[in-house]
Design a binder for these strands. Structure first.
Length: 426
RNA sequence: GGAGGGAUGGCCGAGCGGUCUAAGGCGGCUGUCUUGAAAACAGCUGUGGCAGCGAUGUCACCGGGGGUUCGAAUCCCUCUCCCUCCGCCA
């Protein structure tokens, strides 16, 4: 949620930004009109309420002094004032709800440094790390590698749950578990994050806080009976940890890391990303979430991104960092960088992480504040998050990068201690 | 799933429908005293909206929503959450 004051004071600027974001439906003008209407009604109703407060007190006083007639006369007057207040309050509530709804559908503003572009074709590769591995045999895609090794089972996944589900078996399942445990340890021990184990099922209010609702309800799984929703990412519960709180002075920065499964309905077009484990309805992810002071926002984004990149470097898998242009920016993000690992088997760059700075956009929706100093006024915190990293795709990169001519897969050095010393999956 | 009891400021805890502008205590801040501290004493101590350059004014908030009333922390309805007991259970 934006601060309405920004729109009120710089409507033309906000309209320009919406155009840059390619968001033609953002109800900026509607919000502006509703805001004006709201303040008009508010001034009216408050004046009447102030009158009622004063006169009601006088009625009490008159009653105590036994001046019934005067009290009754005043009562009659106040009944009319009360009716008027009720009328205005009802109107105000309608306007308030409409304004809230409009504000909820306006995306965050991009940071000044974000390149302007119409869609993902205008994203910018800001750096590349490592050299794509050379093979003296034709590298296979992971679905061939995995099935041959008996660690990936697509047919049974479909039998159990339908398309876009798969089963990991044996050392495949263990490789994923090793990656999870190792990534958590790196972020906790070397990058200073503290671990969180959150619920995987949350209320609508929680999804609203991160901006997933109301706009993206289609992508979520939901239990209708209890109105609980499966999380699409750990970002949702972890960011909302401090919803409706004022963090005491000295609390920031806070950095959490959480491993969770993620559930996404995604009405995916048939034929796109169908093979392999690249895109499923259920996947695992290690996620970093930060709460910081506004002044530190951009520095913290750089640090978060580096923490995510560090995982790829330690796995010795080549990657590139892509900066999203305005047209490809997510709804809540003010700036966003993706990390893409090179998968030599299927021959594509795989998005394994997405690191974003949300400025105070999520904090405003989720009401997350902090006190800069003891006794100081609360301010909205800045929130950030980034995958560190998303699993099925890191699995793909590992399987395809570390494959050997005989169909076996070498286990990256850093993971061997987490695999019970296994050096090769064969 | 069944039965009962609760929700009040940073925390504990009072609160006949009308000086509630929410008692009292704890904690915190400031001051007096002191070489310093403690103690004692005094004062202050929530969040947000709107108007205003500002001083300030005003409105709202006693778990959420709705109702009764001239007036609601207080009465009524409803929802959520917490606690106790029973049942079930990894």
């Amino acid at each position: 949620m934006l601060d309405i004051k920004i729109i009120r004071e710089n409507p033309e600027f906000v309209r320009q930004q919406m155009a840059a974001l390619q968001d033609l439906n953002a109800p900026v003008d509607k919000a502006l009109a509703l805001d004006e209407e709201r303040r008009r009604l508010l001034a009216q109703v408050e004046e009447l309420k102030a009158l009622r407060n004063v006169e009601s007190k006088r009625i009490g006083q008159l009653m105590r002094e036994g001046q019934r007639d005067e009290a009754d006369a005043l009562k009659g007057e106040m009944t009319r004032v009360g009716d008027q207040i009720k009328l205005l309050d009802d109107q105000l509530k309608i306007v308030d709800d409409q304004l809230f709804d409009a504000m909820s559908r306006i995306p965050n503003l991009p940071l000044p440094g974000v390149p302007v572009g119409k869609d993902d074709s205008e994203n910018i590769v800001v750096r590349t790390w490592g050299q794509p591995p050379q093979f003296d045999f034709p590298p296979l895609p992971h679905w061939d590698i995995g099935e041959a090794l008996g660690i990936l089972d697509f047919e049974r996944g479909v039998k159990l749950s339908g398309s876009r589900f798969y089963v990991l078996k044996g050392l495949g399942a263990r490789l994923q578990r090793a990656l999870i445990a190792w990534m958590l340890d790196v972020h906790i021990d070397d990058h200073g994050y503290s671990e969180v184990y959150p619920p995987y099922i949350v209320r609508a209010q929680t999804l609203f806080g991160t901006g997933n609702l109301p706009k993206f309800a289609d992508n979520l799984y939901r239990d209708a009976e209890d109105d609980l929703w499966l999380i699409p990412t750990a970002e949702v519960p972890v960011t909302n940890l401090y919803r409706d709180e004022i963090l005491p002075a000295g609390s920031l920065p806070i950095g959490h890391v959480a491993y969770t499964p993620c559930f996404r309905r995604e009405k995916m077009s048939a034929g796109k990303d169908v093979r392999g484990i690249k895109r499923g309805h259920q996947f695992d992810k290690v996620e970093m979430v930060k709460f910081v002071e506004p002044e530190q926002g951009e520095a913290e984004l750089a640090s978060l991104l580096d923490n995510a990149e560090d995982i790829a470097r330690r796995l010795d898998i080549p990657y590139r960092v892509v900066q999203m242009c305005t047209g490809d920016l997510a709804f809540s993000a003010a700036a966003k960088y993706d990390i893409e690992m090179w998968a030599p088997g299927c021959g594509e760059w795989l998005e394994v992480s997405s690191c974003s700075l949300f400025t105070d956009f999520q904090a405003r929706r989720a009401n997350i504040r902090y006190r800069p100093e003891e006794g100081a006024k609360p301010r909205y915190a800045y929130t950030l998050n980034g995958s560190g990293l998303a699993l099925p795709r890191v699995m793909i990169a590992v399987l395809e990068t570390y494959q050997q001519p005989d169909g076996s897969v070498r286990v990256p050095d850093v993971l061997q201690p987490y695999m019970g010393g296994v050096e090769v999956i064969r």
